[in-house]
Simulated scan of single mutants.
Amino acid sequence: MPKALETVLEIDLKSLEHNYRFLRSKLNPGTKFLSVVKAFAYGSDADQIALKLQELGTDYFAVAYVKEGVALRKAGITKPILVLHPQPVNLEILIEFQLEPSMYSFGILNQFTALLNRKEINRYPVHIKFNTGLNRLGFAEKDVESLLELLENKDTLKIVSLFSHLAATEDPKEEAFTRKQIAKFEKISVEVTNRLKIQPIRHILNTSGILNYQEAQYDMVRSGIGLYGYGNEARYDAELKPIATLKTIISQIHHLSPSDTVGYNRAYVSRSSRVSATLPIGHADGIGRQYGKGKTFVLVNGKMAPIIGNVCMDMIMIDITDIPSKEGDEVILYGPELSAHEVAKTANTISYELITGISQRVRRIYSS
């Protein structure tokens, strides 16, 4: 791509294809693949990412909320879209755009069933979520009997899948807990399928699950962070390619004298003659204040430069004293050359938070 002339997020669709094919290579031939494109496809661009994944042959998509699914439909996505966390107020539009809701509680199940009855709709596709230990959403094991009584002999719903969410597939120390979750899901799903005499898709593995628990593939797997180039482990990060590079430029260079200060609250004090550069990106763009005060580095002309002072709303300042630089030079905040995982660690957070937090005012550009 040409050199950045402003703050941009470069999205490499070839790297997306590489990651998709790598993850699929870990699956049995008949295992379906669900691509998670919630949160603007993890901070990139849901429309372009989903269109590319649809072209590559993904079987399913997942989003968090109905609004995200509607946007995908308007962008031309025709594959099934699972809405992981539908809200009752959005159920009518969910039906209008042929989205498939997760039924995670008796409340959402009863409200959706009542709506279908009023509209005289039968066999609407839904996904039943079970809580096997993450304790966010899903029917508990103790709910299964009551749930089955509600679902038996009803034509209103078509149960497309049964699924659960694992809590710690990337952590070897939690293997026993993960296997306990898988065993619980196996028990519940067998009971449900036998009782209702159905053969739904079953899925429980996320990205780290695909890589570490391949024997629990069931009928489908789900991947989010892996598609975007992060495997939560160094050995898998080496196999994946970050699809996004956050770039900006140097707007102005300052020559600081000893005791000069930089930024709000004079948070940086120069102890000697230093050179600083101001960049047109700040916490309104997703680079939060936690990255300031020397904790985090950016890449300038191949060398690491620390962020100094407090991160401002629209600007950050960096120390380029030992880096030959000029105004207009390109600066990399994260990407293949500087992992978002490593950058996030400097602020005691995770790559997910960093990459999904990039503001929509940052222009997205694409290579394929």
Rank of each mutant, 00 (worst) to 15 (best):
N301I: 02
L91K: 11
Y291E: 01
D319A: 02
D59V: 13
Y352K: 13
G231F: 11
G107R: 14
S44T: 15
I204A: 03
A284W: 04
I77T: 00
A238F: 02
V221I: 11
V343E: 06
L227P: 06
A244P: 06
G282I: 00
G76N: 10
T261M: 05
L299E: 10
V126N: 03
A71R: 15
K26R: 15
A344E: 00
L205F: 09
M220Y: 07
K119Y: 10
S161Y: 00
V362T: 08
S189N: 07
L72H: 05
L299F: 05
G231R: 09
Y228E: 06
M315P: 01
N232K: 14
E55A: 15
S270F: 06
G69H: 12
L115A: 11
L246F: 07
V160Q: 14
E68R: 13
H341F: 10
K180G: 04
S259H: 12
S164C: 12
I95S: 03
S208R: 09
V37K: 04
L256G: 13
I188E: 05
V8Y: 06
P258C: 00
I201T: 15
L256Q: 08
G263H: 04
H85F: 15
V300R: 05
V83T: 13
D219T: 09
E175P: 00
I93G: 02
L338I: 09
S270Y: 02
R271Y: 06
E342A: 03
A244I: 03
S146L: 15
V192Q: 08
R271F: 06
H341E: 07
N131W: 01
I308T: 10
I250P: 08
L162R: 05
T349A: 03
N206Q: 10
A62G: 15
L115T: 07
A50N: 10
F40T: 09
N117Y: 05
E186N: 13
A62H: 11
K52N: 12
D143T: 13
K3R: 10
L137F: 12
A168N: 08
E186A: 10
M313D: 06
D219H: 12
N19F: 08
V160H: 04
R364L: 02
E141K: 09
T321N: 07
Y228L: 10
E191V: 00
I281F: 05
T7Y: 00
F130W: 11
G30C: 05
N28A: 13
L27I: 12
N117V: 15
M317H: 01
V221H: 04
S272I: 01
S35K: 10
V362H: 11
Q181I: 04
I128W: 10
K187A: 15
T261W: 01
I355H: 02
K3Y: 11
L299R: 12
S272L: 04
G335C: 01
F112W: 10
V70P: 12
V192T: 08
R136I: 10
A75F: 15
R73V: 08
T113E: 14
R222H: 11
L227T: 02
A183H: 11
E6G: 09
L72R: 07
K79C: 06
D237E: 14
D285L: 05
L13Y: 13
K79D: 04
T156K: 08
N110Y: 01
V262R: 00
L166Q: 01
Y60N: 11
L91I: 09
I93E: 13
N28C: 04
Y366H: 01
